[in-house]
Design a protein around this nucleic acid. Structure first.
Lengths: 209, 209
DNA sequence: TAGCAACAGGCAGTTGACTGCCACTTGCAT
DNA sequence: ATGCAAGTGGCAGTCAACTGCCTGTTGCTA
């Protein structure tokens, strides 16, 4: 039995959930971030009630869909990066992969954002790997030593947010990645102010986001 | 007569619009970013129909409310900054003022974001001043020479987006401002990739945001 | 100061996110 | 293979954003 909050789904249910997420990504890509949940359910071949049973609201659905996309494109890159000799290049390759995915699926990203999801959470599943890669780069003296693990998801969230200010298909975000990397270099560094915890208060109210 | 798209409002109408914006800021602050437009209209003492006549949707309303807040807190700071001897300190004071406002009125910011508004636009009215301050800092050799005017609103949008990843009341964003300022320094700079235009395509669809 | 264009706002209606109810189906443990 | 917990999905309903219509009011101009 599953003691955890994360219950095991029956195989058909898990398959449906997977299908809904994939459907969401496709429909968002096709019809924009305002696409209706009805359409997503229909495209997935399930009833709307099933969609809502699995994903309590649009924010959760869109964020989960984004996570699915990120997983698919980042998992192999992370694996490769962990083997890389050059830790800075390794870190870079992960950021690059995440940004490419975010740009490619910017409609899903927009849906998540508009529904009020906290985008940096979508990096959650790769937090540990990202931390490890960061630490390696620090130990190699390639990036400043006063970075903490929480910095990476935030930096990626900042980069994601750039996509609204430009044609998402362009790689204009590279300019700002470059800027930030200059800031990450061990050379220029004025000491950083302390870090505050990642989203300590789930926001007044009761959002299941 | 007003030939422009920006027609002059009758004095009573202008007063109402002003009131609606102030009401929006108050109600968002009080009831959170999901506050209903009904409540905002009521709190402003106007009918809901009047609210919608002036602001076609929640995104426009929230962005306008945010702009009102930014104007109030930034206008005097800009004026002061333009007189400042130290151009980097001057630029900093403006960023500081904007971030303080954004943190203080994070519910209005959240409402704008959730409704799909492009936050960097809210800096629009101060684009020129910001450009001037930036250029001065460049000429004084205090920040890298390859920055362009479009960079500033984007950097501010990035900083704004940090507020979702932390307690908005904290000043945790300063850490990342510090990071970015290190990246802006003329010292470390690897040359930046080219800049792409700010939001060239108003996004497929027809959002009046 | 008269008269019109601009404005106000109630009311009823549409749409899309989301919920409760409930009868029907189906993995899967025994 | 069989029984039941888990999963499905139609239907009707709520709630909030938004619109059209239409009557009554008011700033402003001649």
């Amino acid at each position: 039995m599953a003691t955890n909050s994360e219950r095991l789904l029956r195989t058909d249910a898990a398959r449906n959930a997977e299908r809904i997420l994939r459907s969401a990504r496709e429909v968002f890509a096709e019809s924009g971030p305002d696409a209706q949940l009805d359409e997503i359910a229909q495209h997935a071949g399930v009833g709307i009630r099933t969609l809502f049973r699995r994903f309590p609201n649009k924010a959760v659905l869109a964020k989960a869909a984004l996570e699915q996309g990120i997983s698919e494109c980042i998992a192999p890159v992370i694996e490769q990066a962990l083997l890389d000799d050059d830790p800075l290049l390794a870190l870079n390759s992960v950021i690059d992969a995440a940004m490419s995915l975010a740009a490619r699926e910017h409609n899903t990203l927009a849906a998540a954002r508009n529904a009020g999801a906290v985008i940096s959470d979508a990096i959650g599943p790769y937090y540990a790997s990202l931390t490890l890669l960061t630490r390696r780069a620090q130990e190699a003296g390639r990036i400043r030593a006063d970075l903490v693990p929480d910095d990476m998801p935030r930096i990626m969230a900042m980069l994601f947010s750039l996509l609204w200010t430009m044609d998402p298909a362009s790689d204009g975000w590279r300019r700002y990645l470059s800027l930030i990397l200059d800031g990450l270099s061990p050379a220029a560094a004025t000491p950083l102010p302390e870090s505050v915890p990642l989203r300590p208060s789930p926001r007044p109210g009761n959002w299941p986001i």
